[in-house]
Amino acid sequence: MAKLGKDFIAIRDLPKAHLNYLLSQAKHFKTFFSRPNKQSPALRGKTIANIFFEPSTRTRSAFEMAGKMLGAGIMNLQMSATSINKGETIIDTVKNLHALGVDVLVVRHHIAGVPKMIADHIPIPVCNAGDGYNEHPTQGLLDIFTMLEHCKSLKDKHVTIVGDIKHSRVARSNIYGLTMLGAKVTVCGPPSLIPMGIESLGVKIETNLKKAITKADFINVLRIQIERQQSGHFPSLREYNEVFGITSHSLAYAPPHTIVMHPGPINRGVELSSEVIDSDRNVILDQVTNGIAVRMAVLFYLLTGAEA
């Protein structure tokens, strides 16, 4: 099988075999968690730079944890908008990091396409930790990995993604990966937050939440950004909660085995009710743990040039 690519930018561009390889590697790395000594020396001597142009606690700490478990050194750079506006371009910044000798760049940016642009300008591997509304491929991987802990295959499984699809990189990475694995994906949210042409990605649009979840094996609930209400995409948080919130009331319309997921951080009482968060119908904390395993798989694959 072909060598994996230099970078990990998008699930959209990933051959299916590579997606499956990463999922199986993640499964292998997850077994480390129950060992007495969790660390492996696989990436000893390598340095990972987490370069975040947008604040993020959980993704950054998951990458950090994943790197540490593989024995790599970690460098965290929180870039503010001002440090870039002093005339230094993003490309200048990352060329400097390359010159410092880091081995892989983990990049988060609020603009779609930036990790790709960086990858085109430096020879070391780049891992996308979320770019604008484009993709969040490690989140997509961990969501799929978590689903696969509850079913053998995703073929013909129903997955409903609820929320702000338009401004969601998580939704896009989920859609690309899930459709690649044969799942039936439905997106649900206010029409003002459903992007034009999304159906061309092979998903169904259903704006009625109850109808959208009647067959759902998994419901992936997206975080609703408060700014979207301020910019007029929906009227109020209360209205959103009553129409699109996943509560024990709305969950009554889903099959009893439905599993609820959320990429975090959650707005309690807006997209998810506390009852659901604190019930056993969700796997939100499993997602957090699995986030480390899939990122170990991705970092290992980028830094060792493993063959799939």
């Binding site: 993709e135 992007p195 034009m196 042409g197």
Partner: peptide, 12 residues
């Protein structure tokens, strides 16, 4: 604004 913008995650 259209399919390609949605695909690329860019505002249309």
């Amino acid at each position: 604004e259209g399919k390609i913008a949605t695909l690329l995650g860019l505002s249309g």
